[in-house]
Design a protein around this nucleic acid. Structure first.
Lengths: 189, 189
DNA sequence: CAGACCATGTAAAACGTTACATGATTCG
DNA sequence: CGAATCATGTAACGTTTTACATGGTCTG
């Protein structure tokens, strides 16, 4: 039930359309909550009906019209209640790790290929997050920004995403190399 | 649809009961796939019906009877098909990160408390994983084991879990310290 | 004697994913 | 002229979570 809170959190930095939120979810929010567009649009409808957000129509001529949403006082209160309650333990779901777990009983070649691919994706995300961090902190350096910046939440979660992707890249690269070496070994090269 | 593959992967190292699998899922498998007991029992029923695993009844006198399951040839083939197919992107879901994302608009005290708690959990898991790794590699050192061990899959995923929890601990500790410092700042201490 | 551990499930409700739908504009 | 971007949904289906249920043994 925390998709709604992820949406509310994303609306803290001002008004956004559903479409913008899908972009935000694809990039930064994906560090801690994954959601597809249909989920977001459905949640926005529910949130508005519950009075936790307010939408206003924006008429556009060159593009389809859109609705921009803002968090309400009730929405803020809901977020606070959520923050006060105990957190559920986090969880990861990762197909690729299931494959690595099982790799001893299988042909390792496809797993190695997927590890390489995942490492490449991680590199992409590292670059992306590095750029986002620079943008978020503006003219300040990191220490300054973290000490005195106005909105550090997204910066902190992005930092975590960055470190996670570093870990991801290194682990995937190392694991792929190891499985390659073992394949050569067992083929008697 | 990969809960079934996580279960199959867990059965690669021999027969297990549903109850044992719930324990295994709580500990090591939780690094990449979370599942509650009801899910596991339901999946075992489906897997057996599909001929991917086989169960045998074990009568016990001091305890309730149990069923031990083994993976079949068909199950192995299914795992291979799964490994060959493209992986879905991994995702994390974490309430606590949603709270940190939103922390600028909220009372940070409960978030800080939860970060401390999470850091403590991470420390517990680091110890646990360190012990599991020692047990898995037996008399060999890590390099030896990874080069020539028989079953490295669970070792590799556990290594990743260990690093993830290190990251987790450090990030939670650092973030809690930072939010504390900012709280003092804004109160004019 | 209360609580944890062993052992396995059913049922309903909530949530998430996939497929499909629409339609205009801009970019290569 | 095909693909991507903007913009928002509905409907069907599958998966996960939550609540409930049972009952013996073993531990403090």
């Amino acid at each position: 039930m925390a998709l709604r809170h992820a949406v509310l959190a994303a609306l803290l930095d001002g008004e956004h359309s559903g479409y913008e939120l899908t972009k935000i979810f694809d990039i930064s929010v994906s560090n801690f909550w994954h959601a597809v567009p249909q989920q977001i649009y459905a949640e926005l409808t529910r949130l508005e009906r519950a009075g936790l957000i307010e939408g206003r129509q924006v008429i556009q001529h060159d593009r389809p019209n859109k609705r921009l949403f803002t968090i309400t006082e009730a929405g803020l209160a809901e977020l606070q209640d959520f923050a006060d309650a105990a957190s559920k333990p986090s969880f990861i779901r990762d197909d690729l790790l299931v494959k690595v777990q099982a790799v001893d009983g299988l042909d390792p070649a496809p797993v190695i290929a997927q590890l390489d691919e995942r490492a490449a994706q991680a590199r992409g995300r590292i670059e992306l997050f590095t750029r986002i961090l620079v943008r978020l902190r503006g003219p300040l350096d990191e220490e300054e920004f973290l000490a005195r910046g106005e909105r550090v939440g997204p910066y902190l979660t992005c930092l975590r995403g960055l470190r996670f992707e570093h870990e991801n890249r290194d682990w995937c690269t190392g694991t792929a190399a190891l499985l390659r070496a073992r394949t050569r070994e067992s083929q008697g090269t």
